[in-house]
Amino acid sequence: MNNVKQELEHISTELSRHIEICSGGYKVPDTYFESLEQDFTSKIHSNPYETPEGYFDTLEDTLMSGIEKAEGAKVISIRSKVQRAIPWLVAASVILVAGVWSINYNINGVSADESMLTSLSVEDLEEYMEYNIDEISLADLAVEDISFDEELYWISEDIDDLEEELLQTDLTEEELLEFL
């Protein structure tokens, strides 16, 4: 700690001057400022913060209780929600396509899609594809019932988790560089 004291000599001097200025002309005992600077190095190292009374007596139990709650709360990630929804989405799409094709075919005797496709321009098709791509994305989000903000939150949490994993591995600097 002596090295730290030497390193911070200037700060102690300035802080003692600060107190002198803050006194705003009020009188203090004759020897007050002579001893003040000497005392400062040790005084300013003391902790200015306090905690609620008895905080550390119960902290262990409080922290363990928080850990147990966190362990009990199973968080389902958006990725796993999407993965679980995929079979249902595929099945619904197949039923929908089959149903529409069947209705069209039965009404017109020929496939309505076929006759429609021959009359469509390239621009019409491009517009159709673009529209449907947007529809698919929106449908996926609607199934998840997750707002855009929530989506961002989940993505950022994933990044946090990845970052956390990297930090919590006690790799040496060389190993980390090698890994990267």
Partner: peptide, 10 residues
């Protein structure tokens, strides 16, 4: 929960 003097606050 802050019990610092003027210098500590600064």
């Amino acid at each position: 929960y802050f019990d610092g003097n003027e210098a500590q606050l600064r």
